[in-house]
Design a protein around this nucleic acid. Sequence first.
DNA 1: ATACATCCAAGAGGGC
Length: 917
Amino acid sequence: MRKLDDRLLELMKERNWKNMTEIQQKSLEPILSGKNTLIIAPTGYGKTEAALIPILDMMLKTNVKPVSLIYITPLKALINDLTLRIEWWASRLGFYVNRKHGEVPQKEKNLRLKITPHILVTTPEGLEIDLDWATRFREKYKNVKWVIVDEIHELIGSKRGVQLSVLLERLKDYIGYDFQRIGLSATINDEDLVASFLFGSSSRQSEIVKVNDKKEFELSIVKLNSVGDIWKNVAKHIISSVEKPSLIFTNSRFLTERLHEELEEYDKDFYVHHSSISRESKSNVEEYLRTGKAKGVICTKTLELGIDIGDIKKIIMFRPPPSVASFLQRLGRSGHKIYGKPRGEIICIYDHDLLEAYAISELAKLGKVERQSICKPIDVAAREILGMILQYDEVEKEKAYKILTSSYVFRNLSEKTFNELIEYLAKNNLITIKGDKLSIGKFFFKLWNFNRNNGYSWSRGFSEFFSTINSTDTFTLKWEDKNIGEIDAIYVYKHIRSGDIIRIGGKLWKIIRINTSRMVVDVLPADKGDGEIPVWRGDGISKSYLLPKEIYVLFKEKRKEISDIIDKYVSRNLPLPSPNVIIEEKRDKEIVYSTLINEKIASTLAHILLYLATSKDSLNNYARYSIYGFSINYTEKDLLEELLKYNEKELKRIIIRSILRSPLFISTLKEIQISYGKLGKIDTKEDKLIIKDALRQAISKYFSIKKTIRFINKIKRGKIKIIKYDGSTPLGDAVLLQAPIKPWITGISTIIYDTLKGGAYTLAELSESLGISQKSLEAKLKQMRKPESKYRIVSFIDVDSRETRWCLMEDLENIVKSCDFYTSFNPINSDETFIASLRAINSTTTTDLIFKPKEIIDNPEEIIRRIPFEEIGEMRINDPVDPLVYNISPRFYYVNKRVAPYLLLNAVAYIQNMKYS
DNA sequence: ATACATCCAAGAGGGC
């Protein structure tokens, strides 16, 4: 074996290294001989040094010029950590290191132009920015000899990974050198796939090195008694089982907060960590872990990967993780020292939790991990074409196509699709095609605007162009100048009012002010009160495809750990759960088909049933799906049976149509259309390219057409048996716990109706949550208050904020009674006398009614009786002694007389509020 | 009661 440079050996001594770890030794040879290398080992095995040390050795031995090495890693926190770690070695050898991500101070970033770093640590987005936009620094990249991609398993299945794979090809083409590629990864299923993905068009020899991963771990699985207060039981159990310091993983942000609320009753040394609390609070919590202050930290996936958080004694998982990969990552956060054995516990609540827990632990022991799937998102190709044009000003078609197809992901992108794509981009003026040259189109910098405040309402910040991650609207919680956390905008609009107490980051906060234009909620610390925990909306975590198969094995082997569940089937004379049996359970409002099934097949079937139900029934239908089956709330007919009548061709058509109707497809469409430069409504003819791409992306993520057809064929042939049962099963119960899916209804008024339901919103809030401009929304709202509207709405004045709010007519009575709008409908003085001026629709004469607010409060029916027409065209109030009131009185248009009393009270409350305060 | 996470302008020119 080649001898490492003496200076490196010295440094190892300085670090007190007796030996290099196994993975470090194994990596030396392939890297030193210039091979592209994929290094696979669990966290904590020293993978970074395994790649770094041989590269530093080569850097010492050859006369390298900066930038020599690019180190790419997916998280900002990792960049900060790694920079220090790399700097330790590099600075002692005379090499400069620089980091780049969105939160690095400008000053530090500017430094790299003065002193070019030998090693640059950044994200995929950071590389994108440099190639596309950093005109000067880009030149320095021409010296790059090595690229390391860290945590590659985190990138591979996502658009970020696709983006990176193209970027590497762009880099290679730009510098004209086939640099050496090194990937670092945790245990993965398909090593060869990851390798091809990373190595792309490089013609270097390649090698995969890995350590024989010991799958040893200590794991206990407990099921808690669900009698009594389940939260108290969980808290008590955790208190008895926790070992300082522990990580307590949950599967949602809500649950981390909820669990903390219970645990802090027993012990103050528990903390919360998830993505919606501020960076500052997160780093505090991480510090508490390292210093030993924290007994336990309750967290989500945020702590699955990332920076060193010290020695964790025990991992507690509150309900099973969604996949084996995630289980191993979570467990791997304990026993971090190389030969330490990870120790953990899974707390189960439901029967199916127990099934998943045993299945996951079994799979982990067998060394089975989920396979990654790579899809071919054309929207990312579009972005990369644009990136190349930014880089070169002008790019030949041929060159753009060649670079794209040299990446592993787009290797099969046909010339036809490529041409369709660039012609479409040209049509939308994102690019201009002149002969065989592509250049930037006049719409590009309007869409990707430099100054969002001066831009059009639809324009995006230019910086967003570099990221493939789409972000949702959120409000930032601020206490004075400090960021506390973030809450979904929709949740703020629907549930938060000033004065409320909320719980976030494990602390209570009082809402002081909601600023919708700055998207900021001002809060103050509160020390008591029942804090409401916000709900954040995500995509839904899908469960591993390995689970239903492995759970079937557990049942086949009649494992004693799940004997309670087996008994429930045996005692009901039912066959044990299997992929070959569907138990059709008639439940309260829905039919549940319980079985063991791939989640994507279940999802496809649920969507088909929903589609069939909505075409027969109403818009109130919903369906559910999970690995335990699917359900539909339509009981008139057996829709699954009906499905068996169709032939394969018809089936396929129905499946596509159901998918096109699903919110999953629609949101995918909305997400990607911006990359194509398409704003507003999609046209089924004009925008076929986007529709096709969205359909393919949605299908690969959420559905499975082929497998579903095969599944239905199996039912037809009797290979899958359907058993009707007039009762319930544990798997059926699991299906009913899933959130229902609802049809996407075209037609803006239904969407407005759905959004308004149960609440009252301002125009700005509605426009924000619906993504419709205020102007067109207002026109629609005015239409919807007219008597002929299917969904009747009304507006009133929110006296506290003096804004107009809109709500459903049917909801007004409840809103009047709710404490949220108390001041808006309860006049300060209800003994004053007012005159209501009413005009009928299409009439010019007005009728006046004299009333005191008190009379309305006491007997609203009386004033309704005095109104001479059913529908009021215009209504406002007057004061017999103060004629000015008429001018400031709010006007109400198209009001049904049944709700008029409430609006009169609203007008009085508003006027008195103006007069007296 | 419900369903996670990640990312996001360079660099010239002016003022002190």
